[in-house]
Design a protein around this nucleic acid. Sequence first.
DNA 1: TAAAAATTAATTGTGCACAATCAAACATTA
DNA 2: TAATGTTTGATTGTGCACAATTAATTTTTA
Lengths: 150, 150
Amino acid sequence: MATSPIPSAKNSLLKLENQLCFPFYAVSRLLTKAYQPLLQALGLTYPQYLVFLLLWEHGQLTVKELGEKLLLDSGTLTPLLKRMAQKQWLSRRRDPRDERSVIIELLPAGRTLEAQAGPVPEQMLGKMQMSAEEIAALRVHLTHLLTQLA
Amino acid sequence: MATSPIPSAKNSLLKLENQLCFPFYAVSRLLTKAYQPLLQALGLTYPQYLVFLLLWEHGQLTVKELGEKLLLDSGTLTPLLKRMAQKQWLSRRRDPRDERSVIIELLPAGRTLEAQAGPVPEQMLGKMQMSAEEIAALRVHLTHLLTQLA
DNA sequence: TAAAAATTAATTGTGCACAATCAAACATTA
DNA sequence: TAATGTTTGATTGTGCACAATTAATTTTTA
């Protein structure tokens, strides 16, 4: 007569320790918290830092393009970008060729932050204490999940 | 005369696509969004679901214990638990033996949700489309990062 | 080209998330 | 035991995050 394969593990999938998603949730928050002391010196939050990564590379992008790359919608980006514009880090203006679009352009004060942020990636890698192999393996799994869920 | 090893990759670590942390941030949000339609049927948010995972297992816990297990502080938990108490899912009361502690206890309406949440973990595994090997490998890396950052 | 459909941001409302501060209760020790 | 220090939650204020709705503009199509 068949018995339950793991008798003591009733509802084991409904235990926090057996969740795969919770570690993602927790690691994500802990990573943001690990950035905080580094970014605070620049007056930045983590989502604002992500916007800067894109603007430092591309100079200017529309809100739609920022949202596509960061997987964030305008309800998140609009107030965030307004705060960044108030600090003269970037400008917001309608695209005259398509008045629906808003162009976000890096301003000199925002460009200045790029040099100050230079050491941040290495400092974070130091906090994570992972080998190049581990990082490469993780990147593969995360990219897979990202495409699976996006 | 030595040249830069990767001439075209000036500041490559300051590009979004080369970030390791961004995928964690994005995957975490996408996972929460993937839970949403499943949990909405129960009237739950993802953080509330995590609280329930602990209460279904332990029956009752203090706010401090919940915070330690979920890595959340009282500024997050107090209002969240008040909303859950308002729905009669749990009770909040001071521990008479130590009036500083607040005991969170599962109520019948909260226990009822356990059965309804039963299929959720399998449904999420289906959405993630990962092999048992991938999941096991990910769990190792995530646990390592968690202990490294916590 | 006039009407219908689609695109793009902004707005509104709810719910986290966390730093900083506060207040109450408990523990320690001089 | 009285003063000091610690623990525990609650509160306050700021900043995301996202669903749902709205408004303006552009594109498509009848």
